[in-house]
Nucleic acid binder design. Sequence first.
RNA 1: GGUGAGGUGGCAGAGCGGCUAUGCGUUCGCCUGCAGAGCGAAUCUAUAGGGGUUCGAAUCCCUUCCUCACCUCCA
Length: 467
Amino acid sequence: MKIFDTLSVTEKELDTTSKVRIYLCGVTVYDDSHIGHARTIIVFDILRRFLESKGIKVEFIQNFTDVDDKIINRARTENVSSDKISSKYIENYFEGFDSLNVKRADRYPKATEHIDDMVSLIKGLVEKDFAYISRNGVYFSVSKFHEYGKLSKKKTDELISGARVEVDDTKKDPLDFALWKFADDEPRWESPWGGGRPGWHIECSAMSLKYLGSDFEIHGGGRDLIFPHHENEIAQSESYSGKNFAKIWMHVGMVTIHGEKMSKSLGNTKSVDFVLKKWGPNIIRLFCLSGHYSKPIDYSEDALKEIITKWRQVENCYYELILSGDEAAIAEDTKFIEDAIKETKKEFDEALSSDFNTPLATSAFFKLVKATNQIAASERLVSSISKMVLPALDQMLDILGLEVSQITLKEKNEINELISQRNLLRSQKNFQDADIIRKKISDMGVVLIDHKKKTLWMKQEKIGAEN
RNA sequence: GGUGAGGUGGCAGAGCGGCUAUGCGUUCGCCUGCAGAGCGAAUCUAUAGGGGUUCGAAUCCCUUCCUCACCUCCA
């Protein structure tokens, strides 16, 4: 498959000959995660599922930044240890992302558990003269890494003239960034240069090199990490190892709201907890796929509501399939659906293989849903056809990480019993009592659709926004 | 100011030299006792403005205007 690489500014063929190693910059755990984080993580979740569906082995690492000024500040205001803050939000993270049906990464390394790795990396950089010790800490000397700026396409002289570079006269050069910051307060670790804390960028270098080695296949994150975070990671890692850091840099666009970037500092975020309550995992996942991953997507009620409609079509399709009868299929239907499946699978696969084009892939997916619903509408959806559609549909649902609400055998029997009662009443034109039964069924989260010959039912996901 | 990404029908969103997706919406039907988040049909020929290149451009080049992101922490 091809993926657009931010560094070379071209689409690059992903090397899948052995395993695909992916490092994704995760979250800093000082507050609830929001839908912006969710988008990036869901994109990578589906990328990973897609690769695995092709039998490719994936090693997926996503870090937690659990040492950071924001965590420390929050700990101070709440008068607890920063450890307490970070573990609270790590817990919050897993609660949210498990509910979003995001597969767990192979590892979630934490910065605080890799201090030794960072120290030895810094040591190497000091020895090679890429870093120096100043009054406030150990700094990376940007001028020593001649390719600095290659990822973000920034020129160092322009960066220096930029007004927003911090002024710190303990640094040799304003562009230099901290690898280790001296500190007397907690959290604090010993180092050969003095006690303190690691800088932000060094943790990802240390942990990715440790678990994935040099020149791994994909390094990812949100677009806003390109500069300075990823730029600095490249500088550190390549200076240290002398080798290429990552083969492909894959960056996910921002989630905006009213056209503006969603971020903590602007105070316009929608937390994962909030959106899960309001829209649920399937709608959110579909929303995150609704635009190409590299572009921004705008969070709006209208867009999300539109996705509910689509999701209801999927539920309808799914229940038509699993409740189909045993009559013989009409030959032309078999042919029609055979073609639809073939076409859809091809389009779906090609779309994802071509720089992970999820809007195209989902539109292919919905074509199969529609084709199935067409046959169902004319009451010709029989089990022989379902047996063809279901595996294809399930596979795509699985890659997209979508899950239709399931029903237990007990519920199923109960519902079938109620439906036959209701149909008896209907045939007697006792619609009042029939509607009482329908109400009873709908209280179980099940919706009925009367066809000519039979009554279709489906369990619908409860979606907060609809109540 | 610099750098990057964009501006496509009422809306969302693909396409990236010829075949002008797809979905939502809207309208009208079908089905139904009603209902439907189901089905059908219609609607919508769009590509920011101005120049080029070409037999042919939404797609390539130039230019103007506009939007967003990054240049500080950020997914």
